[in-house]
Amino acid sequence: MMNIPCPFCGPRNEAEFAFGGPVKPHRPDPNAVSEVEWTQYITTVPNPLGPVEERWWHVKGCGTWLTIWRDTRTHDIVEGPGDAG
């Protein structure tokens, strides 16, 4: 069971949240990238072995949407590459 930090409520049980999926990479300009790159963006869901950036919705709590980094090997909530400092 994960304890997910909500910016409004503090750490809460994962049962109070709905999973909002991984954060997708920035949408490229379809005219500026190759068809392969565009298809990759459309069809490939981030699914790394390790830290992944995800959206969660505190649906049974305060209603806040939040973003965390979760390590897919351990379910630990970890610091993302941009979180240092």
């Binding site: 409520c9 809460r12 049962a15 109070e16 049974k60 709590g61 305060c62």
Partner: peptide
């Protein structure tokens, strides 16, 4: 707080 109570 809003939270979960018997799944609701």
């Amino acid at each position: 707080s809003y939270t979960e109570f018997f799944g609701c």
